[in-house]
């Protein structure tokens, strides 16, 4: 197997799905000739032409709305929002339209739509290029929310997302694009939407994460391993629908749980996981569920030290693991 970057996984998934199914098309700002600002769609315009790889005007609401409309009658759009921070003008089209199509049509219409967006901080993007938005959409029934953390999953999950009959929000942590490398299997494969995966087995505590934070948790787990703290790390991969079973099975084993996410602490998706563990795994717990998350400030600050103060880091996670293990 070849070692590739996460963004290569994204690109291969799009390429293979477009080759497989001529209904699949890509749209977004600068996705065509330029291949996207992160080059996720590089080469697609040359291969599939402007009928299937469409540059759009700078209008996120229309990008998503047009994608929803085209999904309703026979095409399979993959819309790119250039940065997750820019997705908000499209919120109405996603929440009021895409998410409700199946429900309001008595299950007769589907909306096979994928919306991809790079999210997350740690790249000095400042207030408008660093945001985590997954909690907004994980709150909305009718949407699926997927966040890969490895190149293999980026490809396998995105291929599944394209084939999914319902709208999938596919968030890619921009810092993982070229930082995270890994093997991508040769040949055709799909990674199913839904199941979480245990990235590291452990017995003392359970650590739940997604995206970049999965890697930070693995680093933290490694750093506390020598201290006798055996941390199990779960990579959620899909936030909605949530794989409660994998989480609860782990908590049953470890009796201690923490959730790590980069979004603001309050109302972040970690709150939902904490509630699931408290509500359905209470009798297994020896300690309160811990959350390590971004602080409740309106945006990621630009200053480097402040950005570091905002972001959960392997060191901060390791500290939380120590506290939780000795509770």
């Amino acid at each position: 197997m070849a070692v590739k970057t996460l963004i290569e996984g994204v690109r291969e998934a799009l390429d293979e799905e477009m080759a497989r199914d001529e209904r699949v098309w890509v749209l977004g700002e600068d996705v065509g000739k330029k291949g996207g600002v992160f080059l996720a769609t590089e080469g697609l315009y040359a291969r599939y032409g402007e009928a299937r790889v469409l540059d759009t005007p700078l209008a996120e609401s229309a990008i998503v709305g047009v994608a929803v409309g085209s999904a309703l009658n026979g095409l399979v759009p993959v819309a790119e929002i250039q940065f997750a921070d820019f997705i908000h003008p499209a919120f109405d089209q996603i929440v009021s339209e895409a998410a409700r199509v199946r429900y309001r049509s008595n299950g007769t219409w589907a909306c096979p739509l994928v919306i991809r967006a790079p999210f997350g901080g740690g790249v000095h993007g400042g207030l408008y290029h660093s945001q985590s938005v997954e909690a907004f959409y994980a709150h909305v029934p009718g949407l699926k929310v997927v966040i890969p953390s490895t190149p293999e999953d980026a490809k396998g999950l995105l291929k599944s997302a394209v084939r999914d009959p319902d709208p999938v929000m596919f968030f890619e942590h921009k810092k993982t694009y070229r930082l995270i490398k890994g093997e991508i299997p040769e040949g055709e494969y799909l990674t199913p939407i839904g199941p979480a995966v245990v990235r590291r087995e452990g017995s003392k505590l359970t650590c739940v994460a997604w995206g970049l934070m999965t890697h930070y948790c693995l680093e933290a787990a490694e750093s506390v391993a020598g201290e006798g703290i055996s941390a199990e790390v779960i990579d959620l991969r899909t936030l909605q629908p949530l794989d409660r079973e994998t989480i609860l099975r782990s908590v049953e084993k470890t009796a201690r749980a923490m959730v790590v996410y980069e979004d603001n602490l309050t109302g972040g998706f970690g709150a939902e996981i904490a509630a699931v563990i408290a509500g359905e795994g209470f009798e297994h717990l020896d300690a309160p569920v811990t959350r390590v998350a971004g602080p409740d400030v309106p945006a990621m600050p630009f200053n480097r030290a402040q950005e570091e103060a905002f972001m959960p880091s392997p060191a901060k996670i390791a500290d939380a693991m120590r506290k939780l293990a000795t509770y």
Binding site: G126, L127, Y128, H129, N303
Partner: peptide
Amino acid sequence: GRLGGSCKGKGGSMHIADVSKGMLGANGIV
């Protein structure tokens, strides 16, 4: 990204604002 910046270093290039000059802010949202 310094403390003496218009936004005390929190904003960076795309977010400079100075209400005393009637400059309501650069803006990362097109």
